[in-house]
Design a protein around this nucleic acid. Structure first.
Lengths: 193, 193
DNA sequence: GATTAATTGAAATGATCGTTTCAAAATTAA
DNA sequence: TTAATTTTGAAACGATCATTTCAATTAATC
């Protein structure tokens, strides 16, 4: 009976992500989204409810891709140390290959909206918890394997790494010198060994 | 002959800084600025030219205060290690005492505008250069004093610290647990010793 | 081919955006 | 007081904001 949703929701989300990532939430207009997604204004409101609704889906979409990338690195690497190194080098690739120097969508949004919107705040809180859980698990494994020291608890090192990742993403906005960034990664990871 | 500028420019800048800091550049409207500064709309345009013009002055104002704070810490501390520790603890105080959890104005602006506005980009470039110069100098001194190792050059450690500061500011937006943040600082600084 | 329901296009909503205009008020010096 | 000059208030600018409306179009089921 009904006409079915014709557009590819993943494609639309990907295009919307690109605009939000490049211009930020407040810098992106509904017209920008209409242009980027090739979707009708009405269809956007039908499918996403509002600009913020669409943005929340964009954030989740971006987060799930990031998580799946981390999962891949975890499965490929031999030990916890290699895994963490690989995660940082994934970010490094992202920095070097992005011609627009956008940084990380989630980090950018954290600084733009966390203190302004409760929906965003709780997204950021659960994102932080997930990141800390993944990192803590990795550090814990590394400590079991004796490749990481136990000067600090896994929980403490996880926060250290989480903070370092955010700093790395911020640094990459202006600096995309591969050698300098690789050296930076090594310095960050040194304290764990 | 003429009527002279009546308002206190520093006060106005301080009030404008508070709004821009809390809501971000794109999230701040001219009406917000009129309300916050108690200045007339016309007077703002007379004295600052445009919204972006006012924001650039706000950035410089914020930067000069930050620089003078770093200078104070440098003069009070006994050695390079204490100085860097004091700088981080200055940021820590800022994080813990800010009820709005705004983070750092410059870091926030870097993520919001660097890839969108050439004026902002060059501000950020010179800000990064200044920070790196200060940090490199401190690390160099610490290495002369033998309180820092020479595993990396002062230049390399400076980038590491610059990145760590940005990460610290981002982390402080959600996490203001003093003990956890103090421990984070110690972990960051450990690699230098 | 008729029925059904979602998608679509385009226009319109009222609000707010950054900025400009300009006459009236305010303040200083002659 | 008069002349000079800036600040001020208030209104208006056209543009754009996010969102709503609705009739026309489209496609899937019967």
């Amino acid at each position: 009976m009904p006409k079915v949703e014709t557009f590819n929701r993943n494609n639309v989300l990907q295009n919307a992500t690109e605009v939000f990532h490049r211009k930020g939430y407040n810098g992106t207009s509904m017209q920008d989204l209409v242009d980027a997604t090739d979707l009708n204004r009405s269809s956007i409101y039908n499918s996403f409810g509002s600009k913020l609704g669409m943005f929340m889906e964009v954030l989740s979409h971006y987060q799930s891709i990031a998580k799946s990338n981390i999962g891949k690195e975890t499965r490929q690497a031999q030990n916890a140390s290699d895994t963490i190194q690989a995660i940082f080098e994934m970010y490094l690739r992202d920095i070097i290959t992005d011609p627009n120097r956008k940084g990380c969508l989630i980090v950018n949004c954290k600084s733009e909206m966390t203190n302004q919107d409760p929906l965003i705040r709780s997204f950021m809180e659960q994102n932080q918890e997930q990141m800390l859980a993944v990192l803590e698990d990795l550090v814990h494994n590394g400590q079991m394997e004796k490749v990481f020291n136990e000067d600090q608890t896994a929980t403490q090192y996880a926060l250290y790494l989480y903070s370092a990742i955010q700093g790395f993403r911020m640094t990459g906005i202006l600096n995309n010198n591969e050698d300098e960034l690789k050296n930076l990664i090594n310095t960050v990871l040194k304290v764990l060994h």
